[in-house]
Write a protein that binds this DNA or RNA. Structure first.
Lengths: 219, 219
DNA sequence: TTCTTGACTTATGTATACATTAGTATCTTC
DNA sequence: GAAGATACTAATGTATACATAAGTCAAGAA
């Protein structure tokens, strides 16, 4: 796992636990428990929890501890609204700033995405999630604006909580075989390659909104 | 100072030190020094530094410590670009979501702003900065979107580093007596009151851009 | 029975002691 | 005299011990 300090190890471990649906919204994360289960002292765990709170992935009440934020339809709308617009902004910036190599990288990801084997299996889902994340975060990075990138990352991760929570999303997607992701990804990459800022922004917004709507079709 | 724990105390103290121009970009912040000068143990100081790093107000190298991020014209452009668009977004949302009480509060702030006494003095500058911050962060809050608010807060604070660093800004503003802030603030408040989302967004963008241009007219 | 009080439990809050490592300066050797 | 190794220093990284406070449960009095 490369040479990393325990703070970071704890941070990633906890994020993983959250994303892997190990906790439910409202659950309390105890420093003591976590440190025991991770085989660390409380110090790095506490530090990691502090980060997560600062980043808005956890909530906290004084002397009461950290807990997984409650997922509500309203909150979901808020994250996705933010994601839609900020990622749109990043896509526009990327269309302006991305290098040829950057664009190539995007096409590479789309290629991988299209070659995912055995749709419907758990492994294929994980792979798809991974590629999807790489695609979105790459565009954020290609905006070459550290702040936009930071906000994109945050909103993306935060929205992932919902995606993992309502796991049915990926199930339903693969069920009807109509995975709109890759197609939309391709269009976005094209717009970036053509340096068409407005189109890139528009398509990215639409793409994020599609994701949201497919997720929350039942709300 | 109300009932607050030391983590928070340290956090605010350090932020103050930074904003009060106590450090210059590139300066290293030592846990040991800070804890001594604040009369605390390293633990809460370390925690506070962790937060500040997580929020992007400080940079860090492993085992090397925290340091004030270097200010570059490019970075300034990035922060203000992000601020411009995200605060614009927040203003649009505010025009949709703000309550009548919210709008009243904004007008109250503008009132205070217009009544600032003895322009040019240090005290008046501080007061102006405070009201300005309240105005911008209030609009962020009135968007009623926790994520937008968070990103606005971040970008705003981060841009403040530049404003304090190039203190000349406020000097020059008060020198030529042409403080465009309050007038633009009023227009924005009007747009929000009239529920004109597009106008609110447009005006807010313009306002942030004006600030930037007045700050960096020399770059 | 119910309300109040108080002790107990358990978790966070805080300080400090110890470990580790990056950087530096000095000493030795060629 | 120059280069490299080694010991030293000063900072962060980590663990742990102790302090404090919130919540709980039980016991006793009204």
């Amino acid at each position: 796992m490369a040479k990393t300090n325990l703070d970071e190890f704890a941070y990633k471990a906890i994020i993983n636990l959250i994303l892997k649906n190990h906790f439910k919204p409202g659950d309390v994360l105890l420093e003591t428990e976590l440190s025991e289960s991770l085989g660390l002292s409380r110090t790095p765990v506490r530090h990691a929890l502090g980060q997560l709170i600062a980043e808005g992935f956890l909530d906290k009440k004084k002397k009461k501890g950290c807990f997984i934020p409650l997922t509500t339809p309203e909150d979901a709308r808020h994250v996705f609204y933010a994601r839609e617009h900020i990622e749109g902004l990043a896509a526009a910036s990327a269309a302006r700033c991305a290098t040829d190599g950057d664009v190539e990288y995007l096409y590479g990801l789309i290629d991988k995405e299209n070659k995912v084997q055995n749709p419907g299996t758990h492994a294929s889902k994980l792979l798809y999630v991974e590629i999807n994340e790489a695609f979105h975060l790459s565009i954020a990075r290609f905006s070459q604006n550290k702040y936009l990138e930071q906000y994109c990352r945050h909103a993306f991760c935060r929205s992932n909580v919902y995606i993992f929570f309502f796991d049915k999303y990926y199930s339903s997607l693969t069920l009807d075989g109509q995975v709109s992701g890759p197609r939309q990804h391709l269009e976005i990459a094209d717009a970036i390659e053509n340096r068409n800022e407005e189109k890139a922004e528009h398509l990215m917004r639409q793409h994020v909104r599609t994701t949201f709507e497919q997720l929350f079709i039942k709300l």
